[in-house]
Design a protein around this nucleic acid. Structure first.
Lengths: 273, 273
DNA sequence: AGCTCTTATGAATCATTGA
DNA sequence: GTCAATGATTCATAAGAGC
């Protein structure tokens, strides 16, 4: 499908099929949030949890093929509750991707302070998701200095003056997990983040039910690519990763099966320039 | 082994053996942080990651046996990095515990905002751990009101001035059907927590490395037990869970293989009274 | 400009009811 | 019985409007 900018390519169709036409060892970073099991039924049909791994593997084989040896894949997933317990499709998939040759380098956690409300007799609301990092080699490209952030104010001092309950509520006050109060960058000592990203979900209606906050792909694009590098999102939805790549000067290849979302992504990516 | 208080019992020895003398269906909550793979080499010999599940299963069988049908097991674990990737012994163990009859109800995340600074060529510092919840039945004891926390300031403020729209809810463009009626919020000062616990680790303690900050077992002891209930920690170390139980009026059974830790736990638990 | 207030909305889950 | 549809439950956040 045609594009209006050679460095940003959007394709409409099934990504497993479309990926067959992508050159091997050409992608620096794949970052994607595939439809979770049983989710987004109205637009994607909803893959049953028990069939999720088998549904996933033909696609992942292509992703590993097109990824550069030094490239990275960041995969956003979350366990669904089925019959009162967390389903194992995510951990089954981790095992399967390792058998496909992937190296399970890290499990970043995305903490969502404004997660969907809800309380049930047996559980509280779900405020975190996986960001699984897979690689083809143990040595991969990583630019850690690009994601440094200011050190938080003296945490220990604050903790001492907080009540018991306030301490559990300190989500935005402490430490150097990524996404905390970054309001005063100037003149602050910079530190490396951790493997916990605390970022609120988008609350503005973007016409898509599962939109990344831009700072999430931005973190990984800066961490794993340089300007001019190629970023792939095989389930690009409304194009958040593409927007970030355009802004940061990375090339982007996005695939999406729902025509309406492709149009939405095109508008979002090219209207901002 | 003798104790100085009938409601707090400390035993020195291998927990798999000691557990055989514990009555079936008698424990309301088991909360424990077993030695992670390859850790605590001096006392446990450092279980190699590949043998971790086999090492674990005789003990877990006993834990499930002694747990009440309505009881809960909270298990603190973290994937260790082996040869550049996260080892799968945690997810292998989840699968194995389910095969043993356990119900994998929830995966709480403990975020440690002040974890040790540091970074490596291929990863940042590790700032989170699993708190796996297993049950014997789908219906178990849970006292959610005991762990409520103050509402966020922002929300508390706006509840004082509700608009018309706060009392109804329009359907979202993407078809989600969340209902909300903010008028129910009026007069409510406390809200329920999520499945993410943000708690700083306790850095300086008297001659021991504390596994848990006290607030962590406190959260689960309040959530899953009533005063007088029995709490078990088969790897009780320096006795943090016991201290919490003493303070909150729960009975406690702690097991620890290193005599020095048993003594330390005894001092900590009984000196505070 | 800067503060306060208003508004929309999100990868949800469980118990109950009806077919 | 088994399965599907419906109703009840629940917060925090960013953007924008208003002062």
């Amino acid at each position: 499908m045609a594009t209006t900018d050679e460095s940003i390519v959007l394709q409409c169709g099934d990504c497993t099929t479309l990926l067959r036409d992508v050159e091997s060892d050409s992608v620096d970073l794949c970052i994607t949030s595939p439809p979770f099991a049983d989710a987004r039924k109205s637009s994607y049909g909803g893959v049953p949890p028990d069939q999720y791994v088998n549904w996933f593997l033909p696609m992942s084989r292509e992703v590993f093929r097109v990824l550069k040896p030094t490239g990275t894949w960041i995969l956003n997933l979350k366990e669904k509750v089925v019959n009162g317990e967390r389903h194992t499709y995510v951990i089954d998939l981790i095992k399967a991707l390792r058998e496909q040759g992937g190296i399970f380098t890290e499990d970043y956690v995305w903490v969502k302070p404004n997660s969907t409300p809800g309380k049930w007799p047996n559980r509280f609301r779900d405020a975190w998701e996986h960001l699984l990092q897979f690689n083809k080699q143990r040595h991969f490209a990583m630019y850690q200095d690009a994601v440094m952030q200011p050190r938080a104010e003296n945490t220990a001092k604050r903790v001492r003056h907080l009540s018991e309950n306030d301490c559990r509520r300190m989500k935005s006050a402490t430490g150097s997990t990524f996404g905390k109060n970054n309001s005063h960058w100037v003149g602050r000592e910079m530190v490396y983040p951790s493997n916990v990203l605390t970022l609120a979900t988008e609350t503005k209606n973007r016409g898509h039910s599962a939109v990344f906050p831009e700072r999430l792909p931005e973190f990984f694009v800066k961490l794993f690519t340089l300007p001019g590098d190629l970023v792939l999102d095989p389930f690009c939805g409304s194009g958040t990763v593409g927007c970030v790549c355009k802004r940061l000067g990375r090339r982007f290849l996005g695939m999406e099966i729902v025509p309406g979302y492709v149009e939405l992504a095109r508008e979002r990516i090219f209207s901002s320039s």
